[in-house]
Design a protein around this nucleic acid. Structure first.
Lengths: 245, 245
DNA sequence: CGCAACCTTGATTCTGATCAATAAAGGTGG
DNA sequence: CCACCTTTATTGATCAGAATCAAGGTTGCG
């Protein structure tokens, strides 16, 4: 890993040298353009499990690309209810909700020790107006988030508990597989309660539904270790709601 | 209303002369910048009630700003379930889901006779790279949509039927009031079924809940004509879920 | 005017929430 | 490294809210 030493103690990692460039911000950029993107990035930041990347209400200045690790985002209501709005893994972008209003509207929490790349938004805007392909790519990332949210709405508004859980497992499976991990054998980084919050279910329902899936022989559940034994069955279960995956 | 006559039959309406400029795309632009935005707009288009502005799967080329009228957007699943993902009124932007993928991922349908301004996306990108304030404003619009979606997730994942309906009525009330209409006396443009789909409820539940609100004296319901008699009560009901409104 | 779409209301069912008890895992400090 | 404590997960029993099924009424369009 190449690191540039700036101002003595800070180290900067480069997009142009990152294994995630096929998934993350630099998608579709040529070498020269990628160098401009390197100039956008401020520095990388490490977080311990449980640490907040930012909290709702804090001033917004930067987007963050997950480099390693795993995050959740949550929106909270004053009366304590909170809703997990997303789980984020490497190459995914956190913080786009802060652009309008210049204030973060959700919390972002590391669910395991993680590292993020900080992309100051002013730099990104400036680079975008020079680089049409970066510009376009960033529009697409925001649009993709809107489409993802539509899928979650479909899931929360229309699907039954078992369909929600099947869609959830298939979604994780797909994204892990995109990153070169096993599609059907993985560790959940989030608790049953967090899964439930994301899916609009109580943790007991998540637990029961996983147990039922296991009894049917569709998955093997060992605490947080999940093996999908019959992905086709899960796919059948959400057939007709492809959008939600 | 000033209209420019281009190519004989087409007429073009101008942002610089539109009463919605405080709510719509031109927010924060000066006169010169607004002229550039006028150049972005292709033409306006009229739709009859029930007509589709676009359908899921069609190629994406333009965003649409609602000029007059009322729209819904829906995502459909093959098995017929469909989820209303939004209701849009004047000054609001439709189609941002199409940017990633260059394909519309939802249907947009006029719920009354309507008129939209067509903003070809390539024009918008081009104008954005010249006009930083337009650029920034467009980022903010996309971000606002993401934040709105988070609110809907909170609503669908955590709230009870009566809270959802209260949040829905208050949201409509707020947006109508922003447009200079009465906040507490309005006509619903959508059916009970469409409200239910948006809120993750069945139409019978919407109907029953409205009846209960009326019995309690909080609202007066006459078919599609709604009068909010005690907005404070509705507000109390969703207190602690401000985000969802 | 007649039909179709939409709405209301009631009776019943069912899914998932709640309440509760126990078990297992993971982290902490001695 | 182990004992303890906290957090997390599983499972069962019961309950409640919303869905479903059903019937009748209203509106408005062709």
């Amino acid at each position: 890993m190449i690191t540039l030493h700036k101002q003595g103690e800070m180290t900067q990692k480069l997009c142009s040298n990152c294994s995630l460039h096929a998934l993350c911000m630099p998608v579709g950029l040529n070498g020269e353009e990628m160098a401009d993107l390197d100039a956008v990035m401020k520095q990388s930041r490490r977080l311990k499990k449980g640490e907040y990347l930012f909290r709702s209400g804090e001033p917004f200045a930067s987007l963050f690309a997950v480099r390693t690790g795993f995050f959740k985002t949550t929106v909270a209501s004053q009366d304590g209810r909170d809703q997990v709005t997303g789980f984020l893994m490497s190459g995914e972008l956190i913080g786009m909700d802060g652009i309008c209003g210049q204030i973060h509207s959700c919390d972002a929490v590391a669910l395991e020790d993680s590292e993020v790349c900080e992309l100051p938004f002013v730099n990104l805007e400036e680079a975008g107006s020079k680089l049409p392909s970066l510009q376009t790519h960033f529009y697409k990332l925001m649009s993709r988030e809107i489409v993802r949210d539509q899928g979650v709405m479909l899931l929360l508004g229309n699907m039954r508990a078992e369909e929600r859980l099947a869609a959830f497992l298939l979604n994780l499976s797909q994204r892990l597989s995109d990153r070169g991990f096993a599609a059907n054998d993985f560790i959940l980084r989030m608790s049953r309660e967090e899964i439930g919050s994301y899916l609009g279910l109580k943790l007991e329902t998540v637990s029961r539904t996983l147990s039922r899936f296991q009894q049917e022989g569709w998955v093997k559940v060992e605490h947080k270790h999940i093996r999908i034994l019959q992905p086709e069955v899960l796919k059948t279960m959400v057939a007709g709601c492809e959008h939600a995956i």
